[in-house]
Amino acid sequence: MALQALSLGSEVDLWRPQTGAVHSAFARAVNLRMNGEMWTVLGANLPDTPFGIRLAQGGHLALLHVQAGDLVHVRAGYMRVGPLILDCRTASRWAPTRWPQPATDLEVRLAAIEQVARPRAWTGSAGLASEVTDALRRSDRDLARAVCRTVGRGPGLTPAGDDVLVGILAVLTCGASGPAGIRATARLVCALAPVLHSTPDVSRHLLDQAARGLPGRALHELGKAVFEGAPNDILANALDRVLDTGRTSGADACLGLAAACRFTFLTTERLAA
């Protein structure tokens, strides 16, 4: 079956010949293992990701009869994924843009996000977000303990604790976080490395990508909207897109994002005050 791709993530190179295999196939996404990276084939109704290939059609990907272990071949703008041929030559390319410095009243927007996200998140996520960001203010040992308690914790294919960390990393790696963000990212990555093996494959790759400043488009656009001080309707739309990710994943990431924003920006504001 031949399908057209609608858009591609910034990190996907479909012109260099390469081979891989299907890692896992779900109703909404098919994960591919490609040279140590995890690519994802998504329906049109889902947002882009840095390693994503969005199809021009939505619907149930399980109907495409792709199975784990199917071979993947990439060549000259085409992909073969099991029985599917994807023509990606004319697909648009999504690349994240730099977040601006936070506009005033950041705390108000963060509180609004938390208010909507908290009831939809896993019950322990808010606590984990606080624990990790608090630990970022303390010693490396404290941070390692906090991260160890967070990684792989909670329900879901991507455990809630990992989603919280993805939210935190999205803020720390955005250009607006400056040198403090770079230092905090480096410490968090060091704390993460020894325990990454304890979380499922897909989640591990998402954490790895987030640590490289490559969150998904929905989270990226929510962060931008929050920092820009976007109008409420735009903020609400961006939030809805994130919350739509998984059963609790989006909400868990929102809590991580809010906690990291407070750690990175509001502390400085308070100190300055």
């Binding site: 071979l71 071949h73 990439v74 060549r75 000259a76």
Partner: peptide, 12 residues
């Protein structure tokens, strides 16, 4: 050759 690749990118 382009058609061959479009039919199956596994052709290498």
């Amino acid at each position: 050759l382009q058609m061959a690749v479009s039919k199956d990118p596994a052709h290498n």
